[in-house]
Amino acid sequence: MGMQKELQAAIKAILPEVDCVIGWGSGPDPLHGAPLFMRSEDDANRFASGFFAVNNPALFLPEYKGKKVAVVVKGCDARSVGQLLSEGLIKREEVSLIGFPCQGVVDHDKVAAALGEKGEMGEVTAVLEEGDALVLTLRGETVRLNKADVTAEKCMRCQYPNAHIADTFVGEKREPVATADDFADLAVFEAMSLEERQAFWEKEMSRCIRCYACRNACPLCVCRDHCVATSRDPSWLTQADSVKDKLFFQVIHATHLAGRCTGCGECQRACPVGIPVLLLKRSLARSVEKLFAYRAGIDEGTPPLLTFTLEEPTIKERSW
């Protein structure tokens, strides 16, 4: 793993200048990575990038405001950082970014589905990457999976594999997978009628346990303890176990991210019951891109919903 060694060297080089370097280390099992907060060379030796470095380290940056930190970012993570910067939620001079060409990350739901009858993800004792394949060891057998089959959806349409803002860039920039976002995932969803879509959300949201993992994993949900969803005054949500309240929470999350969501997909990845919550945010991102030609985290300037123009050529108002 040449890339890993190079990144570790870059981390060690910046360690003396910062309080902490945020990246990834090994997780609870060989299939999972986990965020790693590095403060010493020993910590840096535990750094592990690659296919299992799924977490978005931009999530932790607002908490470190006022301290100088460095963060290792994939392309999508850099978009989140870009958005946090353009909203003034973090300061550029307090954050140092280490970018690298991301080759895509794993989708654990797909791994679990691919394993199927062969066993649970927790039974995997070793994982080897062999070119385009993953070789897993579980129950004393080896299972070969095609990497492309277990790669996250967002990576399949990735336009920004190389961090677009980086103070240090390690390695050669790679070609993006796609040149434009065609929102094909939304097109598939929209093949359903309005009634079917409503039934779809009713069914999906009925599984929701309101753990708010989607909110807590979101790098741009910065209200934290002041989230309107958990406030009693005003009381937007009741504590009833109803689809209405659960769906309304997703609407709160999505509308508060309108024009801000960079599509990192952490909300959906964090969901323990597999609700496709990213769909709502993708829909809003498409509207914002169409109306205001703005891609969150990439385009400079004030986010479109925090500003206006006197004439809005793209908005067709009701004639009556």
């Binding site: 939304l186 969803f189 929209e190 309005l194 009634e195 079917e196 879509r197 409503q198 039934a199 779809f200 959300w201 769906l247 609407v251 999505a254 509308t255 309108a258 024009g259 769909l279 709502l280 829909s283 809003l284 498409r286 509207s287 914002v288 109306l291 919903l305």
Partner: peptide, 10 residues
């Protein structure tokens, strides 16, 4: 923007 979200919610 909100109007654009409604069809996604059904």
């Amino acid at each position: 923007v909100l109007k654009g979200l409604l069809p996604t919610l059904g």
